[in-house]
């Protein structure tokens, strides 16, 4: 994907995150450019989810700075709800609100948090639902949808806020294998349209296809940043080689 510009949208500088006394993220620095797709890889427990949650203030950080469009966003705790309107996030767990219909789920943020006009948002929501092939589900409730459909709705719900950047935390990890594709396709489509994204995933083929850059994290530190073809063909660090070997083995044993 290559609508990438030189304009820095998100800047992470020396970010540190501790849970109690344990340093989960040690010293993370990373720039994400406008239109760029960054895929974060790493072994389970290395801090990928924690990093994403720090980026939209769901976790407090103990050191460093985060900037969006050149402005520091982590200084004032009371402003996070305003900043989160510009940073969309989709989680691994199905997080649609079960007591609201699909369309109510999508309208909640834009109408209540952003105070936008309902008819205008509704038109946008219907357009987005059409794009992911779920317009006919708009009055259904979450429990009537499959896992893959729920995740597509969760993506639409985040998109309807018109975010500047989207964070995806293993959104296909709890899906049945046959539903993974339909969700990844939506994300590929977004990448093509130039959406700036930070994606945590365990789908290596998808990572290779969608990423402008791969960021490999190990034990709370960035161990390697590389173009996807370089990372997958010739990783420079020992840790990354070991990590990729696990997946190679998985692929081979699946044959």
């Amino acid at each position: 994907m290559s609508q990438k510009t030189q304009e820095k949208l998100l800047e992470i500088m020396n970010l540190k995150k501790q849970y109690d006394d344990v340093e989960t993220l040690k010293d993370i620095s990373l720039d994400v450019h406008k239109g760029e797709v960054v895929v974060v890889l790493g072994p389970s427990g290395c801090g990928k989810s924690t990093l994403l949650r720090c980026l939209n203030g769901l976790e407090e950080i103990q050191g460093g700075q985060i900037k969006l469009n050149g402005e520091v966003i982590n200084a004032d705790k009371t402003k996070w709800h305003l900043i989160r309107q510009k940073i969309g996030m989709v989680f691994q767990s199905y997080d649609l609100f079960p007591h609201m219909s699909i369309i109510e789920n999508i309208l909640l943020g834009p109408t209540k948090a952003q105070g936008r006009d309902k008819t205008e948002v509704l038109a946008q929501a219907e357009k987005l639902l059409t794009r992911v092939g779920l317009l006919d589900k708009k009055d259904a409730y979450p429990r009537q949808l499959s896992g893959g459909q729920k995740q597509r709705v969760a993506i639409v719900r985040a998109l309807c806020m018109n975010p500047e950047i989207m964070l995806f935390d293993e959104v296909t990890a709890s899906l049945d294998p046959e539903m993974v594709r339909e969700v990844l396709d939506v994300m590929l489509e977004l990448a093509k349209q130039g959406m700036t994204m930070v994606i945590v995933t365990h789908e290596m083929a998808f990572a290779k296809a969608v990423a402008d850059r791969i960021v490999f994290i190990d034990e709370g530190q960035i161990a390697e940043i590389a173009k996807p073809q370089d990372f997958f063909n010739a990783p420079t660090t020992e840790r990354a080689k070991r990590f990729l070997n696990i997946f190679k083995f998985n692929e081979e044993s699946e044959r």
Partner: peptide
């Protein structure tokens, strides 16, 4: 589930709005 609170916050809702809606 705690993640409902998290997804409410990720949508830019204030704590009060999360309680209310």
């Amino acid at each position: 589930p705690a993640h409902q609170r998290a997804s409410g916050r990720a949508l830019g809702l204030t704590d009060l709005q999360i309680y209310r809606y």
